[in-house]
Structure formats: structure tokens, C-alpha cells
Design a protein around this nucleic acid. Structure first.
Lengths: 263, 263
DNA sequence: CGACACCTTGAAGAGGTTCAAGAAATGTGG
DNA sequence: CCACATTTCTTGAACCTCTTCAAGGTGTCG
């Protein structure tokens, strides 16, 4: 609902396997090679020949580890690269002058972050790791260079950006017209759906973010998020134990999202 | 605040002058040529040489007129082209199964619509003309083809998409964390700012949309929009006569947007 | 000029927020 | 490994903003 399905070969661009340790480099950044990454199907265009794959291999400059709680990039920082998430979980958020901030998305393995930086050559949001993470660093000038040669890559980049635009349309719909229960139901359905596409359970998940972060994303206060979780639990729709959530009745969640605003 | 400044040469791609009438074609679609369009500075990459300009000239297949109230494209329709608005005013909106819909943006001359269609090769929203309009039709495969040859065009396309992503971040912030007065103030400031960049007044504007459409965009009911306009008028911040709005105190509007949630 | 769409305003009501307190989990340092 | 500090989560009660429902006014177009 909120975010589109993860079509195969759709989420990212390139993710690299076979790490090659280079002792003289910063321990945070490790040079890598890529073409047999286990996330490849998640994040590369399909149907490439060997030569094209080799070229795309060259996109990823390095991998970088990001500790839980620290930022991959932050508002105002010079834009140089897009990042493909290999492992871990991120949030992105924008802030106002007066201290408010708004979580604009949660990103997981195989997804791409950093697109916001292209327009002004500087990032306009923060990307914060919600758990220890590792990303593939893809210098954007390399991406542009290569996508002039490999048509499939060019189109893939366009699709990634378009997908993000469509995802945000969904969030606007959620924020603009749904009530608390609908928002949380849509949020949960979206999360399990994306996790399921990565081989995790359809019904069980561990939230990587706090109630406050969920609230920020959904335009609600953390107390409302907590209360809504409790209501879902009372209704037998989910089991909630802190950040562990088990969905008992997926259809009930779907009905909540699609209910024609009954009141 | 909500939408970024209109950097010169940033909004669109190509807009064509010198219409060439072709009598055998649909009256709605007119073949055109382009390079001296008066909107060029708004919507083309800068610093191109003559040869490159000629190439970009070839992007625009036709112009198309869209009558007030009719759609340029609609949800589910096959995606083929991006559209540069030459004249007129559009809204884009997404809908749910259960009949709700959400205005995701208002677009004016020099801006590009249709980016949502790239991911799934079909549009996922409606684009409706709020007044008689004319757009330049730019087949997307031509854009991809040419942007492989003209680096500036390639980067320009990326910037347009990134700009849209950043704009939507702003809307999410608005919907997720602002109260009614803040939302309307931000909306008005954004509109005049964009109109001003097109040579219109900084303080006077004619709303092309209804209260209900404003409300949908801002996540408010039309009554709330109306009441908030009245409150601004009472406070001497604006003069409102139906769709004619005169801003008397821009700073007051700015303060409302940036007020640290005082209550 | 009448029909229709759009806008304004009032009053009552609901959903979500705010404030507050306490419980549960997590992390830290001894 | 345990005790303590800190963060996170839950729940209650009062309050407030925005919505809902309703009526009447204004503008526009055939």
C-alpha cells in the first residue's frame, strides 16, 4: 500500500561480494568486488551479459560499515555517491529550522539511499543506521558514466528514482487521509511485505526503530503508536512484545487499511 | 519550504516554440519545434552548444492541449512520455480502492509531470488540468536515448527526479508535523515563490484550485482551509476574496511556518 | 435568471495530543 | 555478573485541534 512491491531486480543497483581487504585503508572502508553478491537479484538490472556485468562491477568503489546510531550522510553534506544497503537498517529524516524532524523512510537490505542529494549536490536529509550496517558506496559520476554505456543500467536508475517518487506518493496518501489505526496497519503490512521479499517471515518481525520514530514517520505521537499497538493486540490482530511483533490476522490489517472511513 | 527554489534551468527539460500546424493531425496535438521557447531557461540544461540544442529539439514530439477539468494521463494508463507544462496549471492525485484520493502536487509552467510512470511502465496517478493547458510531449525512450549522448541532459533528468523526491520530503514534513495554520502558510509561501520565479507578483496570486483540493493536498478538510484563510484575514496577514489572495505580511507567514510549535 | 458549484461560518463531537507516572528493557561500570 | 542509570514503552486523564454536520451565502455559467 504505502510502498510498492519489491519487483525482482528492482530495488538497488549493485552490491558486491568477495571483499578484498586492503590493510592500508580506513577500517571503515573496504574495497570490494561484486558480481556474485547474494543480493544481486534484489538490486541489479536483469539480463546483462558478462561484459556488462563486469562494467557494473566497477561501480562500487568501496564498502563502508556504519555503526548503529551513526549517520551514513547528513543534511548539508556534499553529495558524491548513492549507497546500496548490504546489511542493516536505516532511517532517513529531514528537519526544520525550529528543531522538528520528520522520518521520511526506513530502508533495508537491497534498497538505495542518497537520491535526495542529486539536485543540489548536497544531501538534504540524514541517513541514520538503526542497527550496525554495511553499504556499497557507488560514486554517482561513475553511475552516470556507465549508464551511458549500459542501457539497462540507465533505465534501472530511472526506475529506482521513479519508485521512490511513487513510494512517497503512498506516504502522502497515508499522512493526508488515514487515521491512526489505518496508518499503523499500512505500516506493518508494508514492513512484513518487504521483509518477506527478503526471505523473512510473513507474520513475524522485529522492529528496528522506536515508537517515536514510527510515530514521526506516520505523523503520530509515540503514545498514539503505543496505544494503537495495544488496541491491535486487544483485538487479537497482533501480538506485541516490545519490538517483537507477530501478525495473527493479516486480513484484519488489510481491512483496516481499506475501510471506507467508517464513522 | 515545502518545495525547493526554482533554480534557473532546473524545472523542466524542453519546451518548444514555433508551432507548425499540421492539418492532418488531431486538433489536440500539434507538431512543434523548440529551441527558442520562452520557457527555455526554466526547463533546459544550461551551457549547451548549438549541436546539443538541436538534438534536444528533437525530443519534443508534439504539443498537446488539455482542457480544464480533463486529464493529461490517468492512473493505470500506459506510460510513454514525460510532459513539460507550457501553459496552464495541473494537479496530480493518487487514489485508494475505497474511493479516497489525495492531491500529491500542483504543477505550473516549466514543471515536468509523469515521472511516476517510469517504474511500472504505467502511470500511478492522475494529472488533471485545473485550467486550459498546453504541454510538450516528450517520449521517454527519446529522452533516454539522447541523454546517453548529451551528458548535461542526462544529469538534468536526474536532477529533475531528485528534485521531486526532495519536494515530497517537504510535503511529508508538512503533513507529518505541522498544524493547519502552518500548513496553509507554507502552502501560500511556496505558491507565490514559484509564481514569482515566473515573473508574477510576490504578494498577489489567484488560486487555481478549490478549497477541497487545497485541503486534500494539505491533509485538511475544506472547512478547515476556509476557516484558516479567514483567520489569516482577520489577523491582517492576507486579503482573501474567493480565489484571489493578496499577501499583506509575508514575514508573518514565515513566522507561522517556523514557529517552534508554541502551545 | 436560475441551477450548480464553491465558499463561509457555527456548533457539537471525535480522534489525537499533552502531561504525568510508572513499568519494562537495555546498557554501563564496578 | 549484578546494580544502577538510562532509554523505551505503556497507560490514564484532561485538553485541544480539527472534523463533522448543517445552513446559508457568494459566484459563475449556460
Amino acid at each position: 500500500m504505502v510502498e510498492t512491491d519489491l519487483a525482482p531486480g528492482a530495488a538497488g543497483i549493485a552490491c558486491h561480494e568477495k571483499p578484498v581487504k586492503i590493510t592500508t585503508m580506513d577500517a571503515q572502508t573496504i574495497k570490494v568486488a561484486c558480481s556474485n553478491c547474494n543480493l544481486r537479484e534484489l538490486c541489479m538490472p536483469l539480463g546483462l551479459n558478462a561484459e556488462q556485468l563486469d562494467k557494473i562491477d566497477e561501480i562500487v568503489a568501496v564498502r563502508r560499515k556504519v555503526k548503529r546510531g551513526s549517520t551514513l550522510f547528513h543534511n548539508g553534506e556534499k553529495f558524491t555517491s548513492l549507497y546500496a544497503i548490504r546489511t542493516g537498517f536505516f532511517k532517513t529524516c529531514v528537519g526544520t529550522d525550529d528543531g522538528r524532524d520528520q522520518v521520511t523512510g526506513f530502508q533495508m537490505a537491497g534498497e538505495i539511499i542518497g537520491l535526495d542529494g542529486i539536485v543540489h549536490d548536497h544531501h538534504t536529509c540524514d541517513a541514520v543506521a538503526l542497527e550496525d550496517a554495511e553499504v556499497c558506496v557507488m560514486p554517482f559520476d561513475r553511475i552516470e558514466e556507465l549508464s551511458r554505456e549500459v542501457n539497462a543500467l540507465q533505465h534501472h536508475v530511472h526506475k529506482i528514482m521513479s519508485r521512490e517518487i511513487v513510494r512517497e506518493h503512498g506516504v502522502m496518501l497515508l499522512l493526508g487521509s488515514m487515521r491512526a489505526e489505518e496508518r499503523l496497519a499500512a505500516f506493518l503490512l508494508n514492513l512484513v511485505q518487504r521483509l518477506h521479499a527478503r526471505g523473512f517471515s510473513q507474520s513475524e518481525l522485529v522492529l528496528r526503530m522506536t515508537r517515536e520514530e514510527i510515530g514521526s514517520y506516520l505523523g503520530l505521537k509515540l503514545e498514539t503508536v503505543s496505544r494503537t499497538f495495544s488496541k491491535f493486540a486487544d483485538d487479537g490482530i497482533v501480538e506485541v512484545k516490545q519490538r517483537h511483533v507477530r501478525i495473527l490476522d493479516t486480513d484484519a490489517l488489510r481491512k483496516i487499511v481499506n475501510s471506507p472511513a467508517c464513522h
